[in-house]
Amino acid sequence: MIDSLFGTIKVQYLVKCDPAKTGLAWSVFLAQSDLLPAVKLLYRANYFLEDLTAIDAKEGYLAVYHFDHIDSPGRVALRVLTSHEAPELPSIASVYQGAEWHERETTDFYGITFTGNPNPVPLLLAPDMTEHPLQKTEAQRAFLWDLFPPAEPLRAAADFTLLTPAAKLAETGEA
């Protein structure tokens, strides 16, 4: 369903999950530029935003957007990567107004800037606080391929290597 819905979007990696095992129906990795078009498609398909958070990994911050559907339930996870150095993502609050608070919360916790958020002030933490409590130290960070179990993607871009273990990557690189 999602793979046909996202037909016009150049997804990096799309996998159909088993809801009984992960709670997700679809897991999609997107480039930053594709996030807003994809979210608009979801909105037109009557999906609602469940939550928005980020995962701090070695490769950068992986922002995770969870969507669900009222009539045909099935959770869709959109994932967008942004760097540690300049964490910045486009805001989806113009499509889903409810995302405004989720984005502000993520800014509080991780320091990711959401460009286009209508009210980008701290939400849960004190306005003069500069720390971002959920940021991890370099030693604590894990690789994304370590966190997400390998799966058979329905679609995957050729240059998408985020979920390929480093060892395997080195192998194929050598080959």
């Binding site: 095992k21 992960t22 709670g23 997700l24 469940e50 939550d51 958070t53 995962i55 995770v64 969870h66 669900d68 959770r75 996870a77 894990a142 370590d146 966190l147 997400f148 179990p149």
Partner: peptide, 24 residues
């Protein structure tokens, strides 16, 4: 075990969701 899971429950106020990511 490594991996991620999302579990939602119908709370008295709405959908309670817990998204868990584990590195083992």
């Amino acid at each position: 075990p490594k991996g991620e899971s999302y579990f939602a429950v119908e709370g008295a106020r709405g959908k309670i969701g817990v998204h868990l990511v584990s590195n083992g």
